[in-house]
Computed example of a mutant assay.
Amino acid sequence: MNNEVIVTCAVTGAGDTVGRHPAIPVTPQQIAAAAVEAAKAGATVVHCHVRDPASGKPSRDPELYYELVDRIRASGVDMILNLTAGMGGDLEIGPGEEPMRFGPGTDLVGGLTRLIHIEQLLPEICTLDCGTLNFGDGDQIYVSTPNQLRAGAKRIQELGVKAELEVFDTGHLWFAKQMVKEGLLGEMPLFQLCLGIPWGAPADTGTMKAMVDNMPPGAIWAGFGIGRMQMPMVAQAVLLGGNVRVGLEDNLWLDKGVYASNGSLVERAVDLVAKLGANTLTPEQGRKKLGLIKRR
Rank of each mutant, 00 (worst) to 15 (best):
K209G: 01
Q178G: 04
P202V: 06
G186D: 09
F168H: 12
G94C: 00
G136K: 06
S144C: 04
L122D: 02
G136Y: 11
R114E: 03
G136A: 08
E119S: 08
E187I: 06
G200Q: 06
V109T: 14
K209Q: 11
P146V: 03
G152S: 15
R155D: 01
I125F: 09
K177P: 02
F135R: 00
T207P: 04
Q140M: 15
E92T: 10
N147K: 10
R114Q: 04
D204I: 04
G105W: 02
K209D: 02
G152W: 01
L115T: 07
E182V: 11
Q192Y: 07
L128P: 00
K209W: 03
L133H: 00
T106M: 09
Y142K: 07
E119V: 13
Q178P: 01
A163F: 12
I156H: 06
Q120E: 14
K209A: 07
T106L: 07
P104S: 05
A210R: 13
L108P: 02
G152T: 09
G160F: 03
K162I: 10
E92C: 04
L159P: 06
S144V: 03
L133V: 03
E158A: 11
T113V: 13
P146R: 03
G89N: 01
A163S: 15
E164D: 15
Q178L: 14
G96M: 04
Y142T: 03
P198V: 13
I118S: 05
K181H: 14
V161W: 11
L193A: 06
P189N: 10
G103N: 01
I156T: 04
C130W: 07
E182H: 12
G94S: 01
T205D: 14
D107A: 12
A176N: 05
T170I: 14
D169N: 13
G94E: 01
G196P: 12
E124S: 09
K209C: 01
S144D: 01
Q140Y: 14
W199Q: 15
G200R: 06
L184G: 00
V212Y: 07
P146K: 03
G183T: 11
G131D: 04
F168P: 02
K181Y: 04
A210T: 08
E164T: 10
E97T: 09
P198G: 05
N214C: 12
P189Y: 13
G103M: 02
V180C: 15
C130G: 03
A151G: 02
V180G: 09
C126W: 08
I116M: 15
Q157Y: 09
P99K: 02
G111I: 08
K181N: 11
L112F: 05
V161A: 10
E119R: 15
L121R: 13
S144F: 07
Q140C: 07
T205K: 15
N134F: 07
E124H: 08
P146E: 01
Q157N: 08
D204S: 04
T145Q: 03
S144W: 01
P189I: 13
E124D: 06
K162G: 07
N134Q: 13
E119C: 09
D137N: 13
C194T: 10
I197R: 02
G138F: 13
E182L: 14
F191S: 02
P104Q: 05
F168S: 06
N134I: 07
T170W: 13
L184C: 11
I125C: 01
P189A: 11
P202R: 03
L195G: 04
C194A: 14
L165G: 08
R155L: 07
G186I: 14
G183Y: 12
G110I: 05
